[in-house]
Write a protein that binds this DNA or RNA. Sequence first.
DNA 1: AAAAGGATGTGATTCAGGTCACGCGGCGAA
DNA 2: TTCGCCGCGTGACCTGAATCACATCCTTTT
Lengths: 238, 238
Amino acid sequence: MNDRILGMNSDKMTILKQTELFQNLDEEVLRILADHAVEKRLDRNEILFIAGEEAAGLFVIAEGAVRAFRTGADGREQIIHVERAVTTIAEVPVFDNGNYPSTVAAEEPAIVYFLAKKEVRNLCLKYPQIALAATELLAKRLRKCAELVETLSLREVGQRLARLLFEQGKAEGKQSADGGFRFKQKLTHNQLAARVGTVREVVTRALFRLQNQGLIIIEGKVVTVPNPALLTSYADSG
Amino acid sequence: MNDRILGMNSDKMTILKQTELFQNLDEEVLRILADHAVEKRLDRNEILFIAGEEAAGLFVIAEGAVRAFRTGADGREQIIHVERAVTTIAEVPVFDNGNYPSTVAAEEPAIVYFLAKKEVRNLCLKYPQIALAATELLAKRLRKCAELVETLSLREVGQRLARLLFEQGKAEGKQSADGGFRFKQKLTHNQLAARVGTVREVVTRALFRLQNQGLIIIEGKVVTVPNPALLTSYADSG
DNA sequence: AAAAGGATGTGATTCAGGTCACGCGGCGAA
DNA sequence: TTCGCCGCGTGACCTGAATCACATCCTTTT
């Protein structure tokens, strides 16, 4: 039993260690942190917390992926960002002492560890590197968020979609010999819509338009971007 | 001369001291910081830096106000946030080492102090309270930004406008006896449009609709919100 | 006080994108 | 294998918003 607990916690420790926030902590501290981490498993689409709820702490995504989103009056979701293992989520309320800023649900089945706000703050006071890491993390998030604002406000759906596909390609895609991307699309049109800020039908149509313009090729679930540069330039202007 | 410089710098020091980021620093450090701060005056609408430019450091807004925005292909501006004296701006690139995430221009004539990235980072390493303050600042910004994303994506213009007016009222407005707000609108329809993510004409019309629904009363530049609760509830749902 | 330049109201028009309503095909559960 | 749920494709339609084009109006400048 003791053995099992130790085993579990060293698992947790190795997870925590992979986190941008806690990577610099030494063994001892990690162990303490791991001892306080409460594990929770999430089914796909299970909700972890809801925007506006009082925030007790943050979560480490140990396995799987989650999405942070806001829900409109009509039930439509706008995804703010998606995070996959291993990262933290819900740092914002830990540092600004507010409620959860968005709803978070499992995009894929996930395992998360809960860490109380107080723990994390204490750590920050004691180990400034964490605070530093946090600033970097938050700054990156903020940058992305500002970009999202721009595209939502200033670009049209086709362009937003183009950008998303480009990013997916760059991240997951292999370069074809000629410099093109090719990757398997794991998202449904509905999911794409939620990221791009629209609805399913519009995505379907926009994808066809992109194809007709020769910017992408879709065969089943496989997306090919023959000329990534063209795709971005489309995303950025007209 | 020496005297004058000292005078100027103690001015700067008192400004820096009012900043969320540097408020906890002691005299000595503030003095060093002030010595390195380069002052710059901005006319209304003068541009301080442009999105995508390499970022050399952050700015302290000593006087006036600036807006951070993104420009669309057609030249339309989407304001991300507005900051007025005394605060810092452009912290993001200091902490994540990227370029400036948005363009910043003077909303009102302004005086700013430039602080090199390196300075600020060194301070963070030496005085963890700054890093802590930075996390709080960034977290707040991020929260606001996420809210902006939500309204842009999920609410319509009338609602966004309603929310903006409500916030203005809450911030600048006096409570009438009956609990209503009343304040002088300092923004033109164009400026409102840039914040709310639309164009002038649409703002004009949306304002009339809000009036017809009895949510606000506009007399010249004076806006009255008879029932703030009604206004928010409109902003949040239907 | 005249001129110039914003700021504002308003109609007409166009259009992207959201809504509805189906049909169809695939895939997993029973 | 069959049933039923999703995910996808599509046409018809509706509507919020952007665009264009003017006509005031109000300040600010000269």
